[in-house]
Write a protein that binds this DNA or RNA. Structure first.
Length: 271
DNA sequence: AATCGCGCCTGACGGC
DNA sequence: TGCCGTCAGGCGCGAT
């Protein structure tokens, strides 16, 4: 569900509210998300000061006095700061009570999310160490995508969604970036000319940045940390718009499946 | 090494 | 009304 802009939106919303707070206690109501929750989790976190809230790829990283709390929202995870009297809803799996009385509440119907407590350097954890660069890093070379795409035969759309290549691009923004760059999602990655690959990376960066400014995209589940939806859905040009007129040329938007994921594009603008 | 397909879960929706 | 199939923002695994 959440791609980079949604996770970053959550991070920005929560950061000022959790930094400097102490974790009073933790309550886990479900045994298993993507992985079984560590039975020690409640004890490991209790009493710890939260130094800061960071992000790597689509992971949130709570930097604690001792170690790091890693949290991934999966497809349907929602993390919100709520008042303690807020009634429990279905799929409210974990509460992290802070010393100011409020609760960080994790809700996740599909339970593809992940919550993990790590000691030591979180970036060297197996889940994080093979991740590609951050697309919004200022020092990412403009020709990074071009260089890496040589000899890669898979479709350019599945290629840019590969988190080992580049992090943060999921199914929505992959279609959007390819539309913005005017590139057919079915083309082999290696078939992109230099200028096309440069344009695509630039489109990815622009769209992710704009989506962050809009507070992310809400299709159904996603909520900002204050409970409001993300507003980038209104700016989606092709995703979810099969049959509607292309915003550029008016031809109907096409839909197909690539790598088992729905893909939207304009057959006439994206060559 | 790279690529593909599947499975993990629940819920919403459309067709019959 | 209900049942059934399909689909959904992610990721890791095993087979090829």
């Amino acid at each position: 569900m959440p791609e980079l802009p949604e996770v970053e939106t959550v991070r920005r919303g929560l950061e000022p509210l959790v930094s400097g707070r102490r974790i009073a206690r933790v309550v886990c109501r479900v045994a298993k998300l993507r992985l079984p929750l560590d039975p020690q989790l409640e004890a490991q976190l209790a009493g710890q000061l939260i130094h800061s809230l960071g992000r790597r790829a689509k992971y949130l990283l709570f930097s604690l006095e001792e170690g790091t709390l890693l949290l991934h929202l999966g497809m349907s995870g929602v993390l919100r700061l709520v008042d303690p009297e807020t009634p429990l809803a279905k799929h409210d799996h974990v509460d992290i009570a802070l010393n100011d009385g409020r609760l960080l509440r994790y809700n996740d119907p599909r339970r593809f999310g992940l919550i993990l407590y790590l000691r030591g350097d979180p970036l060297s954890h197996p889940r994080l160490q093979h991740l590609g660069p951050e697309p919004l890093a200022p020092d990412l070379p403009a020709d990074y995508l071009f260089i890496r795409s040589r000899k890669r035969r898979k479709s350019i759309k599945t290629f840019i969604m590969d988190q080992q290549l580049l992090v943060g691009v999921g199914n929505i923004y992959a279609s959007e970036a390819l539309f913005a760059a005017g590139i057919d999602p079915r083309r082999a990655a290696a078939s992109l000319k230099r200028q096309e690959a440069l344009r695509l990376l630039q489109s990815i960066r622009t769209i992710l940045a704009e989506a962050i400014l809009a507070g992310g995209t809400t299709l159904k589940d996603f909520r900002q940390s204050d409970g409001k939806p993300g507003y980038f859905k209104q700016q989606l040009q092709v995703y979810g718009r099969k049959g509607e007129g292309c915003p550029r040329c008016g031809e109907p938007i096409q839909q197909l499946v690539l790598g088992q994921r729905s893909t939207f594009y304009c057959g006439s603008c994206q060559g």
